[in-house]
Amino acid sequence: MINAQNIEKTVATSEGSLCILKGIDLEIKQGETLAIVGSSGSGKSTLLGLLAGLDVPGKGSITLAGRDITSLTEDERATVRADLVGFVFQSFQLLPSLTALENVMLPAELKGVAGARGLAEKYLQRVGLDHRFNHYPKQLSGGEQQRVALARAFASQPHILFADEPTGNLDTATGTQVIDLLFELNREEGATLVLVTHEQRLADRCQRSIQLEGGEIVADKRNKPSVVVSASGQN
């Protein structure tokens, strides 16, 4: 589903250029759940951004469902994202001027899909927020906001779901609830899940986890396949 080969990412800083990722090779199968772990500054989020097509590497290539996204323009990558990708962010990234329902409707509206409202209502109900349709993000708790974000991510019916520290802004109990929901939904929808986290217990729930240090993969291990859904193979 995702194939990254020899990707490098360098950014310019005031003290010269800084290499964030060094020659990463990674293949993620369809339906696989993968956790990217590592300490702060190890390049986790940068790698996620590259894999999701939000950014392009300085070197190397990435293919997403068979399409080489490194040779695409930003707009072409946007189209790929619209077709394939869903996101869940640490800071929720809900639009403050939109209600919960409108936030969930947004991806479908952008795609021009008919019945965006019905779809959004269905997913909000699924995440247990059927009583919060017309609430604005600031009227919701952190856990509720992340559940809206989950509903939004799955409402676009993605093939691949990218999650960046989805529990980073939540307390442990709420975080656990959100993660349960995330894995449940992922199982139902059969999406490939790529998750950035620094929480080991979260990483353990994925079929596979890779560890980054100093921009390199230092470990790649397979966990107990407790939540495998439709894994067609192992690395």
């Binding site: 930003e74 946007a78 790929v80 994202r81 639009l95 947004l106 991806p107 952008l110």
Partner: peptide, 8 residues
């Protein structure tokens, strides 16, 4: 956000 959701 819109772009991450696929808007060109």
């Amino acid at each position: 956000i819109m772009k991450s959701l696929g808007a060109t």
